[in-house]
Design a protein around this nucleic acid. Structure first.
Lengths: 171, 171
DNA sequence: CTCATTTACGTGCGCCGCGCACATATCGTC
DNA sequence: GACGATATGTGCGCGGCGCACGTAAATGAG
């Protein structure tokens, strides 16, 4: 029984991820973890390259090249962090605009999925999703990773901004 | 409100997709749509290259190279289809074994997500997932695409095998 | 039957995203 | 001030994929 539900969850998860990636690609014309990087950097804490790589689960060089691409596209600036070796990543105005469009595109691609649900069904799903998301991640890092494409404007209850700051400060 | 739920669904969807891809990569040591190809070919209808490409949403050449890799790995055989130009793709014994391990790894990576739910919550989620999956896909092709990593041993109600045969015969 | 069109495969070529091994600069500590 | 830990960047290559193109077989129109 639980396997049947797990299988359905897997199917829906793929459908959701497909739509998210498609929406991001339509706007950004980049694939892989690049869209997520724009979202994450957009939290605006002056994220370091190393923290970025941890959240995106990439190698150091992979992350560096990813930032190279974003800089080349004029979306991100490398500034000096508190540390003289550390880099503080900041979105440019163009990058901010891109981020907004990506997040809007993501929601626009997900809304139709929920359209067929009745109002009580929607409330029930909301409850279940919160329950699942509470217990899924086993670390602050994993929490950040799960929400690497989240819209912080919409999700006021999202655990990410808080975890983000702590993980950002802690390291 | 609906946007909040959509955002949560997006977060969970990413988590699910991450786990599925990770599990597949652990077993197959290949990424992209290659794992899905093994699952889909494993339905055993002697799928053509062209139908495969449609389900995976790849270009023709992309699909051909993907099959090249699978053949090189000894997982797939190219046989002659009814048509002299068409190719019938069939899993080798090694490919079948690989498929089994992938599907088991996928379920194993998804089960923990549902562990924290109570029994009535699980039933409620199952109901909602079925409702969502009923209305999400807009075509038989999209249905196949969503379930390209599904476990047909577990999901007796999965609409895929039927849609698969029709789409396979129809074209 | 002939010939143009469509369908299905395959190939040459290159790009993008990423990891491994390595080099370099800075920080913290003893 | 010497040494390990931390943080970034580079040379190099691989895997996955698309574009443009070429080819063979089925289909359909005359």
């Amino acid at each position: 029984m639980i396997d049947g539900t797990a299988n359905l969850l897997g199917a829906l998860g793929l459908a959701v991820a497909d739509r998210i990636h498609q929406a991001a690609r339509d706007v950004l014309n980049r694939s892989g973890e690049t869209p997520a990087a724009v979202i994450v950097i957009g939290y605006g804490q002056g994220l370091s390259n190393d923290n970025l790589r941890r959240i995106l689960d990439l190698s150091h060089p992979g992350s560096v090249r990813l930032v190279d691409r974003l800089v080349a596209d004029g979306l991100v600036e490398r500034r000096k962090g508190k540390d003289r070796r550390a880099v503080a990543l900041v979105l440019t105005a163009k990058g901010e605009a891109m981020r907004e469009r990506m997040l809007e595109g993501r929601l626009a691609s997900l809304r139709p999925l929920l359209a067929p649900l009745t109002s009580p069904q929607l409330a029930s799903l909301d409850e279940l999703l919160k329950e699942l998301l509470r217990s899924v991640p086993e670390s602050d890092l994993e929490r950040c990773r799960i929400c690497r494409m989240c819209d912080d404007q919409v999700c006021s209850e999202c655990p990410i901004p808080a975890a983000f700051k702590t993980s950002d400060d802690a390291k």
